[in-house]
């Protein structure tokens, strides 16, 4: 889904400290309408803290945050009704069924209950709709909590590590929902420490490290920006030959081709994880 230019949310020079510890240091980014923007970083990088600022659970020390084009301090209840939030601790009522929980959130959000069966079907929970949340697996709970955040068809969805702790099947289910949201033009702000998720689900990424944004861009751009000047040629008799991508290597490559030595050629591009390590000096 192509993003338009109007930013749905933005931060500019946002800083936050807890006591003497600076947890966010000059965060600047903007999320355009219809975009899936990923915040990628290890635990403790400041991802959840950023979400707490966006949801007004915390207030920034300095900097400017806007929501739907307005300073966050002026955001109204109506603005927050346009947002669906799945936090790292989102929880449903354990003694109510999945369906009862969704009904509650539909009523709270001023939406009818008619859309609930379709939502349940989307994530494969229609047969479990009468299951008490306390009897649900973690994956079911997470999917149900995600539905509760989406029950009012929000324009902006803020998801804090939505697949954390899920098994591969449940993760795939959440990723499918994210893809649907993108197709529907919903703006998504997603935090994750999962490189595959970031690469597969996000239009753009910000790599966060120790409260600072180390790089921003589309996943492919980030990897291309950090591409190495190296091509590896697998040969019949000379093993793996490393060539650079400049004119100087052209003759060497031609010679290998002419000699019938070339088995395969691999561009040695880094993946996101390598980009992250290169930018931050540490692993996720």
């Amino acid at each position: 889904m192509a993003a338009t230019h109007s930013p749905v949310l933005s931060m500019e020079g946002v800083c936050l400290s807890f006591g003497a510890k600076r947890v966010l240091d000059g965060l600047t980014f903007a999320v355009a309408r219809g975009e899936c923007f990923g915040f990628l970083g290890p635990s403790g990088a400041g991802k959840t803290t950023t979400i707490k600022l966006l949801t007004r659970q915390l207030t920034a020390d300095t900097g400017r945050i806007t929501l739907f084009g307005r300073p966050i301090e002026n955001a109204s209840g109506a603005d927050y009704d346009r947002i669906g939030i799945l936090s790292d601790t989102s929880a449903l009522y354990e003694r109510l069924t999945i369906e009862e929980n969704l009904r509650l959130y539909a009523k709270v959000r001023g939406r009818g209950e008619r859309g609930i069966p379709a939502l349940l079907e989307r994530v494969g929970l229609e047969r479990d709709r009468k299951t008490l949340v306390k009897n649900c697996s973690k994956g079911m709970r997470q999917r149900a909590a995600l539905l509760a955040a989406l029950v009012h068809s929000p324009e902006l969805v803020i998801l804090d590590e939505p697949t954390s702790g899920l098994d591969p099947a449940a993760r795939a289910e959440v990723h499918r929902m994210l893809a649907e949201l993108r197709r529907a033009g919903t703006t998504v702000f997603l935090t994750t420490h999962d490189m595959t998720e970031a690469e597969g689900c996000c239009d753009r990424l910000a790599i966060l490290n120790e409260g600072r944004i180390a790089a921003t861009g589309a996943p492919a751009e980030l990897t291309m920006e950090h591409a190495r000047n190296r091509v590896v040629v697998a040969t019949r008799t000379r093993g793996a030959v490393e060539l650079t991508k400049d004119a100087a290597s052209a003759d060497a490559a031609r010679e290998l081709f002419a000699a019938g030595e070339v088995l395969s050629i691999h561009s040695d591009e880094p993946d996101l994880e390598e980009v992250f390590i290169e930018l931050t000096g540490r692993e996720l």
Partner: peptide, 13 residues
């Protein structure tokens, strides 16, 4: 304790 209050508040309650 079970974070349902926070979840409600994040739903604009």
């Amino acid at each position: 304790e079970k974070h349902t209050l926070r979840t409600l508040m994040l739903a604009n309650v």
